[in-house]
């Protein structure tokens, strides 16, 4: 295998491992450790989706930082969401939900400045979030993610996350969890 191809395999694997480890923190409710993986300037955006006519794909998603979204925020708000769960009286998450994140189809889209010396990486993946709470309440949320990861020391930070949920009317009563 050429050095270039090997570097690409290694980087893709490294990115996937990071995304799995991040999901592990969320599923194990280690929220403070999860927050530490988010860059201070993170943008975390989950647009809403419209049913539009073929050929009008540009209108399918609500616009970032212009229209309403399911999420459109930075680290401060994400931190407040974690703190709210940690009050123990955030009734929508008390008792806490049982959540499992599945991350798959990890694709390396871009590495800057190079694959061999990647300081920033754009990656796509699929997600499946299973949420079960109280007795039988169950949600299944499936979609795509576009992440930008930034190298920080020996690891990575999430610098940007675009979450594309494959739903129109949200079929869950709330989004008290993270993607």
């Amino acid at each position: 295998m050429s050095d270039d191809r090997l570097a690409r395999v290694l980087l893709t694997h490294e990115v996937a491992e990071f995304l799995y480890a991040e999901a592990e923190l969320l599923d194990e409710r280690h929220y403070d450790e999860w927050l530490a993986l988010l860059a201070d300037d993170i943008r975390y955006w989950m647009p809403m989706r419209r049913n539009v006519k073929y050929g009008e794909a540009a209108r399918e998603f609500t616009r970032e930082q212009a229209d309403i979204a399911w999420f459109d925020e930075g680290k401060e708000t994400l931190t407040r969401r974690v703190r709210q769960i940690q009050t123990g009286i955030h009734w929508a998450e008390e008792p806490q939900s049982r959540i499992a994140h599945f991350v798959s189809n990890v694709q390396l889209i871009e590495a800057t400045p190079s694959v061999a010396d990647a300081q920033e990486v754009a990656a796509k993946c699929r997600f499946l979030v299973y949420r079960n709470r109280v007795e039988t309440e169950t949600d299944l949320l499936i979609g795509k993610r576009e992440d930008t990861l930034r190298r920080s020391g020996n690891g990575w930070l999430v610098a940007r996350r675009k979450i594309i949920l494959d739903q129109n009317v949200l079929m869950s009563k709330n989004l008290t969890f993270f993607f």
Binding site: W70, D72, R81, Q84, A92, E93, N174, L175, T176
Partner: peptide, 16 residues
């Protein structure tokens, strides 16, 4: 967005 709707930190508790 952080107040209202399904991701709204206030409205979430109402819906529960």
């Amino acid at each position: 967005i952080r107040y209202s709707g399904p991701a709204g930190m206030t409205e979430q508790d109402d819906m529960e």
